[in-house]
């Protein structure tokens, strides 16, 4: 008989809340021993490293054109050379270099947008979840309208009005994502609101502020981390999509999306221009998703492997 089926790990966590150290070490242990998290983080770390230290990794200039060397194939094919390991694009620029610099843009965009969305969303979620009432209604209606608006149309309209700079894109993605955080925060709050330890703290005279920040916020962190990683992945793909249809950052700045857009016409003749940015996205997202998936097992213990 499984005696602890009703007492899941979240409850255990709550018990441990009183024992601050105990909880931390549990989490710490999990992060280190879980193989998925390890490899996921490793891959992501390598990608981040290449991207941040781009000038060290590649000595080429991503913007330098050389039209005499347009569309040279990758080094292992006929016509390729060691000078351009992955070949060149339609303006003779080194593809590998552009991909690495493109990664900078995508990752930075992801990070910034998610941070903004997280802050705004958490704030809203905390307020609405804890206080409820009229305020909550209004805020949830805003979320509804937000969700009812077809994202594609909004994006295309806004990108046709404003120039698609980094900050405009960032604002758009934050706009898309913050309801997700608000909802999650709110739902956790709702279920924690009536938990025993919260009522206990309240009866002992703890202020609302203290309760929110110290007790409840801690429970939110794993979910937030999970959502953030998944959202960064979404942003990377969506930016690529937008760049591909021509709505992303204008040339000549490389982003994974617009490198592929440039190569779209040459799909059957210079397949490498379209293929390698996609591979880069794949590897990056693989790392992120591996990390996120395993983290999810921790957050939602039903999926947890039994060791």
């Amino acid at each position: 008989m499984n005696l602890d089926t009703n007492i899941d790990n979240n409850t255990l966590l709550k018990k441990d809340n009183i024992n601050f150290k105990g909880k931390l070490s549990r989490w710490y242990r999990f992060l280190l021993t879980n193989k998925g998290i390890f490899f996921g983080s490793l891959i992501t770390f390598i990608v981040i490293f290449c991207v941040v230290f781009a000038p060290l990794v590649t000595t080429y200039d991503p913007l330098k054109q050389d039209i005499t060397k347009r569309l040279t194939p990758p080094m292992w094919q006929d016509g390729g050379s060691i000078e351009h390991i992955l070949g060149t694009d339609s303006m003779g620029r080194d593809l590998l270099t552009r991909i690495i610099y493109g990664g900078r843009f995508s990752l930075l965009l992801g990070l910034t947008s998610v941070l903004i969305a997280l802050m705004v969303g958490t704030l809203f979620g905390l307020i609405t979840g804890y206080y409820g009432g009229f305020l909550e209604n209004i805020l949830m209606r805003i979320v509804d309208i937000q969700l009812g608006f077809p994202f594609i149309i909004l994006v295309v309209i806004i990108l046709s009005i404003a120039e698609p700079t980094f900050w405009v894109l960032s604002a758009l993605f934050s706009l898309l994502l913050w309801p997700g955080y608000a909802r999650v925060v709110r739902s956790i709050l709702l279920s924690e609101k009536s938990a025993a330890y919260v009522l206990a703290a309240k009866s002992l005279g703890a202020s609302d502020f203290r309760i929110i920040i110290i007790y409840i916020a801690r429970n939110i962190i794993p979910s937030m981390l999970l959502m953030s990683t998944m959202d960064i992945a979404t942003i990377i793909i969506t930016e690529a999509m937008l760049g591909f249809v021509g709505l992303g950052t204008p040339p000549p700045a490389p982003t994974w999306g617009n490198i592929m857009a440039d190569g779209k016409n040459y799909i059957s003749t210079a397949w490498w221009v379209i293929t390698f940015p996609g591979v880069a996205i794949w590897i990056t997202l693989f790392g992120i998703n591996l990390f996120g998936d395993n983290l999810q097992q921790f957050v939602n213990p039903k999926l947890r492997k039994k060791y």
Partner: peptide, 26 residues
């Protein structure tokens, strides 16, 4: 299977579409 699952989630689907066109169609 889990590898396949994460892979399919990590592939940009429009890129996959282009790869499909390249292989299966062309």
């Amino acid at each position: 299977v889990l590898f396949i699952s994460i892979t399919s989630q990590s592939l940009p689907n429009f890129w996959l579409a282009l790869m499909f066109i390249l292989f299966f169609a062309v």
